[in-house]
Amino acid sequence: MADAVSPRTAAEAAPKGRALRAFLRHRGATVALFLLTVMTGAALLAPWIAPYDPEKINILRSLAAPSAQHWLGTDEVGRDVLSRLLFGGRVSIVVGLVAATLSVAIGVAIGGLSAYFGGLLDAVLMRFTDGMLSIPLFFFLLVVMAVFGSGLTQIVIVIALTSWMPVARIVRGEVLRVKALPYVEAAEALGARRLHVILRHLLPQTVPSVIVAATLGVANAILLESALSYLGLGIQPPIPSWGNMLQGSQAYVWSQPLLALWPGLMIFVAVMAYNALGDGIRDALDPGAG
């Protein structure tokens, strides 16, 4: 039955290969994809490729300059910086992906329900969304982390709970648009159940915009995690994260400035890559923009 009213919109109506080609033409996005693959791979393989135990100290070799044994030198207690970067990447990537996924899930749920049911529910949910958008979230985040303690789980949840709003708005807009399309009306007229309509017909239409929002969301989450860790409110040592490595290194900028360079550079590159990827996907799906 669903096949009878083939759900296709302008963006998807284009031959599948075109979007891919458009994406690949986007040089920034291809580079980004490559970088992200390398970074994610390196982080996943950290236990096998890291040259040292990231938590093994050697106080006699502290703050060493880069050398053949320690490519990026050692930190204040002689831990290998490269190994810590590799392991630190796992935290950033996990936080980024999980928090973005969660926030997308919340956003899709709220935006979808709001648009589909409309009326009072829509009004309430959208006022709530506007309200969330207009409070100073970073400050809120800061207080919540300080007051409730920090840790991987807390940080993921808190980021997700404070960053779903743009997704909700996008999804609501898309669903409203699609809802008015003939085939959805047809499906409803044919007596399809509501949930079925939502899951089968409406949500798939929002996928492209949601993918873009999610990609940008990962960048945002990585940035937030590292900012909180930098303030000492995020991931706690001895677990290395790029944010807390950067915080730890600040005390030593005068004696070993390179120590602050690496973790920040990794955050920068990861965030930039996710942003570029998001831009690339958007351009590929919507060739008219720009």
């Binding site: 100290i57 106080i59 204040e76 207690v77 000492g232 706690q236 040592p237 001895p238 807390n244 915080q247 730890g248 005390a251 030593y252």
Partner: peptide, 13 residues
């Protein structure tokens, strides 16, 4: 805790 670089090092040592 992470307050003091010297204390940080003592924990680890």
């Amino acid at each position: 805790d992470r307050g003091n670089p010297t204390r940080d090092q003592v924990y680890l040592v």
